[in-house]
Design a protein around this nucleic acid. Structure first.
Lengths: 239, 239
DNA sequence: TACTTCCGTCTCATTATGTGAGATGCAAGT
DNA sequence: ACTTGCATCTCACATAATGAGACGGAAGTA
């Protein structure tokens, strides 16, 4: 099978990275594993070190670099956003409310994708907005499936209780009324990664007047459906 | 600051990957972002696609590729093994028993590092060995800090109970007697990643005759100390 | 509808870059 | 003390990468 991309240096650099996938590797081992000449491997490996795509361990062996973890994290975020985009639009149109995807980031949650209701009274949360993990239906969802200790820690000073989170796990969705902002209601459901772990929350939000005091009863099912479709898309495109 | 590694093609490829970190990008946008000429960017990007370091989305835009996720996963494993190596030897020497690090892999746990007691009666678990998540102190540790549903699912047909796992969380270590194999006792403690989540278990194992029927009382403290040191090493070298 | 603009892709003459044989220095092994 | 093996470096040279320009097609505009 033709393994040549048309750019020889990139082919060789990829061979070096492939060899490092097995673990820390000396220069001599890299030469053997790649079939390239020693000065070539040395020069390419040092260039990859320069860009942090490769590192060096305490024994001076080459290892895969931390930049790969950074790029992989960005790649994962790309996939979530790509999968969510059209489905958030669908959710917005089906419910008539603005919709968002949140991810946890320490003590905050961050909006990584959104589809705004274009007209009238609406809740606007721009991409990049950081909100509290202590209030709101998305915070409940991002917390409900944490391990026991992280769950208890997350409940400190929160606007919701263990009983509320137990209900979230049972129903598969969370709702909130005026927790983040007076007059705003929201419904959220979990997005799960290929391993089944909750990695994000899909939400709709808008005025209590329209969503009523039981927004979950109105929209819980559709929010869950959309969250499940995003999860499925991530599962299918993982390989 | 000098940003040239000495291999121009790798410098340019790294610039392309840097540009893609911001999200899906057209060829024209890549040309603008990198300052390279159009055919050069096109050729390099296609070469990176060939090696799956870059992909294409449904709109034909370039995105970071799935190979980066694979390499990043291997990089993370490298760091755990590097951090654990000397500390497992220390643990082995301090306790006189074989020591291991396990990670969860679906319904199994895998030994990713070990330090064997060199002489006499000993428990041997070669790196790569897959063991059950239904028995053994390492399985208890890998399960104790899961979210409620995954914890309950993991308890199906397990040799331990919710009460035992609550004790694991309280004491910070788990012990088992003859769960995986008659006559073998073990003690395990959690290794936490930079986010605080349990990512692995450190264990010692050996004959019940030597470890007694209360191996945790004998060795729980030292196993916890070593696990904490591995966790700290991962935290410090994460950036 | 016709025309213009912009983008992605390809070609190929040119040249700058990457290659690797061989040298050097040093650490480890005998 | 000597030998071996490894990482690092040099530099003459061959080749791979470059980018101006061409081409085709899609999108935008009048």
């Amino acid at each position: 099978m033709d393994n040549s991309s048309g750019v020889g240096v990139i082919d060789k650099a990829a061979a070096v990275l492939d060899a490092l996938e097995a673990g820390p590797t000396t220069l001599a081992q890299l030469v053997a594993a790649t079939g390239l000449s020693r000065p070539t491997v040395h020069r390419l490996a040092q260039a990859l070190v320069h860009h942090r795509l490769v590192g060096k361990d305490v024994h001076g062996r080459f290892v895969l670099g931390s930049r790969l973890v950074e790029l992989a994290s960005a790649a994962g975020e790309d996939r979530l956003i790509a999968a969510a985009g059209p489905l958030l639009i669908q959710l917005r149109d089906a419910t008539g409310e603005s919709s968002q995807v949140f991810r946890r980031q320490g003590d905050s949650r961050v909006c990584v994708a959104s589809a705004e209701r274009p007209v009238g009274l609406r809740d606007t949360i721009p991409v990049g907005t950081q909100l509290s993990m202590r209030a709101g239906s998305a915070a409940q969802v991002l917390l409900a499936w944490e391990d026991h200790e992280r769950l208890l820690d997350g409940l400190q000073n929160a606007r919701f209780t263990p009983t509320i989170l137990a209900g979230v796990r049972r129903r598969g969705w969370a709702q909130s009324l005026g927790e983040r902002e007076p007059g705003v209601a929201s419904v959220s459901a979990p997005v799960r990664g290929p391993s089944g772990r909750v990695i994000a929350a899909v939400s709709i939000s808008g005025p209590i007047e329209r969503l009523t005091r039981q927004p979950g009863r109105l929209h819980g099912d559709i929010v869950c459906q959309i969250a499940a479709q995003i999860s499925e898309a991530l599962r299918q495109n993982g390989e």
